[in-house]
Design a protein around this nucleic acid. Structure first.
Lengths: 364, 364
DNA sequence: TTGAAAGCGATACCAT
DNA sequence: ATGGTATCGCTTTCAA
């Protein structure tokens, strides 16, 4: 009496081999498509496998081959369109190369990031892509290549760690944006970011733990300084993570006595909250306040006015980071590569001269 | 002469056991935290493990325990904010329960979906969440529970398959939206969806392969029929997948002699293209055309005018589907549950009466 | 509490 | 071309 093909415990190579009347080794050869087998045997085994409903156990295979066919990805927040787009790029390249993606959200929390990496390493991913939450706390990242697992950094470089890194030219982009604003006559600006410090104030550039933001603020500050604007660091506003906090910051800023005449939003989520706040207060862009946002989110083109943005090749960023990683997995032994993708300032209608130019020249 | 702790091939329980001077079994007990060990031994082993830089091999563990601690997720497109939000919900619940998520994009392609599922099953995921591309081609889905792997359907129910399913009340939502439009006096409407058929035309409701869309169109058609509107099926427009195709459809529709006075967009991506098309043609919402969109994407509140939408609890959808799956993984043996989450019509400013009401009443 | 040994499901090396 | 068998790293009886 034959067993029904639907049995709980799975069918193994041994089962198939028995059914086909060959050795385990031979059955394994055809099922795993390696080695050499005669056509006759191949047919017999395939048939038996189909009849029994054989499904390979990739875990067992991974254990002996040492490759899991999996790459781990750690990002801050998959809900952020920036990351979803990058992840899509990663996933597409990975799939084409025969890899599968394990995705984890760190929520930009360093402890969560560490835990995620530990888990991923335990699952023996063939490689790891991480968008690091901190530029200073990265010992756990160093352990990755040490344990023999290739690592590629996404969007955020870390100077103390020699691995492939793919970023966009954040500094140049920020300089360009700031420059445009200053040329228009802006002197009081605000750079809003989700980054934060314990006391929510920015004392030095070293307080900025997100690599990309650090670069941008450096650019912002440098251009401001060149223009003779005092204390540019004080124009950087931290802690805009999550809708509420973000809205609160935007609202306070726009109602403050030192209301900036222009705002640079460090991502599209922040830009959206700024936009909402402006509407809510009955102000208008760019008359009352100019706005430039990082990330050319799809909706930024349809608002009134459409928003001037720094377009980043996000999908490409994902594709590139995945490609580099896969090269490493396949054994490429080269120096660490640092790829910087260009951005593009897309001028729309959210920037204009400030209403009252507070110039340093004597009035009248 | 001791080996450096940084050796290529990984440190195993056996290595730790040797270093700690205990048996492999004992070392495994403390490293895997199971069984009973004396405190003294535990300390010794832990110490040795730390010194050697031991990292557990989850693959090996999975092979003997039969659990991989992983759940597979198959969605159409992670870049679509609908799915990113749902995936975030899934990932959060999964992480709390100690599971990790393998994410795959099907691109709504049935072959890709099948391949993904095969791979996931081979990797021995503990459970599977899929947003099925087709309501009719689902034999491959049936094999999932047959092979002993719990399956939960996300957002799209399939009548022929008895598994847990979490959806939103698409039909009711569509009825409500359609009703609002008709009450305002609209008779010529357009329902735009990414769904498609070989000839891009909708002959019968059965042509609709996406579960959720099928429900919505049923609602749309039913309410239209109730209102005495002829041939509502012809008001359903297919193939709006991808920016270009989507834009093309919107543009054609808005310039056609039978220009609809109202449009229902089946997701936020479509709504955006419609919005762009309207702007591009110099038309205005809601004067020239009314618009209602499925999915309360964040930006829909800030456009001019803000868009009336059908808010879906997407993150909750993800959380729920993950919770159900995990219950099953933990052995829950109940009948298939079909959970339908409520939606909420959020009225903003994109709906108004049509300019010229083509009524069936005699003119004047 | 601890240890010895038998799997788990594949691959891989060595014969034949 | 095929078969026998050790092996991967861990868990899990079963004894001691």
């Amino acid at each position: 009496m034959e067993q029904s093909p639907i049995k709980k415990s799975s069918v193994t190579v041994a089962d198939v081999a028995r059914a086909a009347g060959v050795s385990k080794a031979t059955a394994a050869r055809v099922l795993g498509s390696y080695g050499t087998v005669s056509d006759a045997v191949r047919a017999k085994v395939s048939e038996a496998a189909a009849a029994l409903g054989y499904r390979p156990n990739e875990l067992a295979r991974s254990m002996t081959t040492g490759r899991s066919g999996t790459i781990g990805v750690v990002v801050g927040d998959i809900e952020n369109p920036f990351f979803s787009s990058a992840v899509r790029g990663i996933a597409d390249v990975a799939r084409l190369a025969g890899f599968t993606v394990i995705l984890t959200n760190s929520g930009e929390d360093i402890a969560a990031e560490k835990a995620a990496i530990r888990t991923l390493l335990a699952k023996r991913v063939d490689g790891l892509i991480v968008s690091a939450a901190s530029t200073s706390d990265f010992e756990h990242l160093l352990e990755i290549p040490d344990s023999g697992c290739p690592l590629v950094l996404l969007d955020r470089a870390i100077s103390g760690i020699e691995v492939d890194t793919v970023t966009t030219d954040d500094r140049a982009a920020a300089e360009q944006a700031t420059d445009i604003l200053i040329r228009k006559g802006h002197r009081t600006m605000a750079y809003i970011t989700a980054c934060d410090t314990p006391d929510h104030r920015l004392h030095t550039l070293n307080d900025l733990q997100t690599g990309s933001v650090r670069q941008r603020v450096e650019g912002f500050v440098a251009v401001c300084a060149d223009a003779g604007i005092a204390a540019p660091l004080e124009m950087v506003h931290l802690g805009a993570n999550g809708r509420e906090k973000c809205a609160k910051i935007a609202l306070e800023l726009l109602q403050s006595p030192q209301k900036p005449s222009a705002i640079i939003a460090s991502d599209s989520l922040i830009a959206l909250e700024v936009f909402k706040a402006v509407q809510q207060l009955g102000l208008s862009i760019p008359k009352d306040v100019s706005l430039i946002a990082f990330h050319d989110a799809d909706w930024t083109a349809v608002t009134s006015p459409p928003i001037t943005v720094i377009g980043q090749p996000v999908y490409l960023l994902g594709e590139t980071v995945a490609s580099l990683l896969i090269e490493r997995i396949n054994g490429a032994e080269l120096q660490a590569r640092r790829i910087v993708l260009p951005t593009e300032l897309i001028e729309r209608k959210s920037v204009d001269a400030p209403i009252e130019v507070v110039s340093s020249r004597p009035a009248r």
